[in-house]
């Protein structure tokens, strides 16, 4: 048997927060090259904080973050994007005064060559965006906005895509579409680290999951095991 490939993302002992108070403590997460990994947990558990700290939007107080074995601890977002991490915030994740095409162009502008091809590639992946490319993003529906936000983050063909609650405030049908998109993006070779309230649906498309509570890592395991675990079902899936 060949040894497993090294993880794309490796977080160990991460502590971060706002102001003086740590929100998450001693978090360790790994995302493999072809994996979808989901972080679940109750409101206020610090799920989004983990993503923001990895992406350099919050200062890392302690711990290490590695991308493909290289330390990226404390690097600012504009550097991490160039290193191959895409990030989709939960809210305000599009430029609403820009057109759809401009949103995608901004997503990919750090690499000028092949920009038009990559925009076409995203249009092919999400045909709904190609219908009116010069429409202002503010006129899109909630689901279309989420699609555009993910499309923007894909413009640099990241190795790791981090999604902060992609299903928040979406209708059940749109939620289905967004999750199908996530699976499709992963199938094309992008690792996914996702934070989700919709724990059951998110775990059902994931390879592995982490359960966060009160800022610490409570449980880890294959997604199927977490879905079957009595503790997870009782505490986080509302059964």
């Amino acid at each position: 048997m060949s040894p497993p490939p090294p993880p794309v993302l490796s977080v160990s002992g991460l502590t971060s927060g706002y102001g003086e108070v740590p929100v998450v403590r001693d978090i360790s997460i790994e995302v493999g090259a072809s994996e979808i990994v989901t972080i679940i947990g109750p409101n206020g558990a610090g799920k989004s904080t983990v993503l923001k700290a990895i992406f350099g939007l919050l200062r890392t107080w302690d711990g290490q973050v590695q991308l493909d074995g290289t330390s990226i601890t404390g690097l600012p977002p504009e550097r991490l994007v160039r290193q191959g991490i895409g990030y989709v915030p939960q809210t305000e994740n599009i430029f609403s005064s820009l057109t759809i095409r401009e949103n995608l162009a901004i997503g990919g502008f750090t690499r000028a060559t092949g920009l038009a091809e990559r925009i076409d590639w995203v249009f092919a992946l999400f045909p709904v965006l190609a219908e009116r490319p010069n429409e202002r993003a503010s006129r899109l529906s909630g689901g279309q906005r989420q699609t555009l936000a993910i499309g923007r983050a894909l413009m640099l063909e990241p190795r790791l895509l981090m999604l902060d609650e992609p299903s928040a405030s979406l209708s059940p049908i749109m939620l289905q579409t967004v999750f199908e998109n996530v699976v499709e993006i992963n199938r094309r070779g992008t690792a996914i680290l996702m934070v989700e309230q919709n724990a059951r649906q998110a775990l059902s498309i994931s390879h592995r999951g982490y359960v966060l509570a009160n800022g610490i890592n409570r449980l880890t395991g294959p997604a199927a095991d977490l879905l079957a675990s009595d503790e997870v079902r009782r505490l986080y899936l509302g059964e």
């Binding site: 992406f55 939007l57 600012p76 977002p77 504009e78 994007v81 160039r82 990030y87 915030p89 305000e92 994740n93 599009i94 430029f95 609403s96 005064s97 820009l98 401009e102 162009a105 901004i106 997503g107 502008f109 750090t110 000028a112 923007r152 640099l156």
Partner: peptide, 24 residues
């Protein structure tokens, strides 16, 4: 121009501009 688009993007949503690799 690309410069102008990045300027409008930074005005619209500074955090997302940084997350897109724009040096604000």
């Amino acid at each position: 121009t690309t410069l102008g688009t990045t300027m409008r993007a930074a005005a619209d949503n500074p955090d997302l501009a940084r997350a897109s690799g724009i040096d604000t």
